[in-house]
């Protein structure tokens, strides 16, 4: 069977290389999502603050990031930042940087929406019942905010994972790039190599993102009441 899927995946180190590519994709996703959550929470709290200047600046930052396609940001940072700074930045560093800049903005907006959606009387009632400011925050505000926040954060996670193939454009050896390299070589002998390899990558992305989406929907349904 010269055109079989097995002959593509078993040839040489093809399967191992795809797994290495997948590992890079997973790493970029984990690093960007992790950093975005860590930076997005304080940014979101600042965004919901009453200080107009602080929230205004963050608002502008969010809108600027949102209006540009991520790929354009990636391209600009990769090809301009190295030139401007004089430091040769790796594709890995630039991708995590750009995805984090974007993820932080989106995360901050989610945090802002969650915090402002909690009625003021919740805090006031907690205080009236004799809870200290800290305990009111910790026992009343935070649990409710987290419930409203979590489905959105999980959603953002899948969006960020689905954005990772963009690093292909700056030649980082992620799953897509490795797949393309394998197809270029195997495609000469195996007529269906591109179908198998791209079909495989399609399936991998689906199998990563789908359970995460289901989790988000499940949490949303569970916490609705």
């Amino acid at each position: 069977m010269p055109d079989s899927a097995l002959s593509v995946f078993m040839a040489g180190r093809n399967m191992a290389r795809l797994m290495e590519g997948l590992w890079i994709t997973v790493w970029i996703s984990l690093a960007s999502v992790g950093l975005s959550v860590v930076l997005g929470i304080p940014a979101g709290l600042l965004m919901s603050s009453k200080k107009k200047i602080v929230s205004g600046i963050l608002r502008i930052y969010l809108e600027v990031i949102r209006v540009m396609p991520i790929l354009v940001l990636l391209f600009l940072f990769y090809y301009s930042l190295s030139k401007v700074s004089g430091i040769n930045l790796s594709a890995y560093f630039v991708s995590v940087l750009v995805f984090t800049l974007w993820g932080t903005a989106e995360m901050a907006d989610l945090v802002r929406a969650a915090v402002t959606s909690i009625p003021v009387h919740q805090r006031e009632s907690a205080r009236a019942l004799g809870l200290s400011e800290l305990r009111a925050n910790l026992l009343v505000i935070v649990p409710q905010a987290v419930r409203r926040l979590l489905p959105g954060v999980i959603n953002l996670t899948t969006r960020m994972i689905k954005t990772t193939p963009f690093v292909f454009f700056i030649n980082h050896p992620d799953l897509m790039k490795v797949g393309q390299q394998i197809v270029e070589v195997a495609g000469m002998r195996n007529h269906l190599a591109s179908v198998w390899v791209y079909g495989f990558i399609f399936l991998v992305y689906f199998l990563i993102c789908w359970p995460i989406s289901l989790l988000s929907r499940w949490l949303e349904g569970r916490w609705k009441s």
Partner: peptide, 18 residues
């Protein structure tokens, strides 16, 4: 739950082989 890019790759490079 799948990125547009991989769909384009499949359509543009995979389908012609079929």
């Amino acid at each position: 739950n799948t990125p547009l890019m991989i769909q384009l790759f499949f359509l543009y490079f995979g389908l012609p082989r079929l």
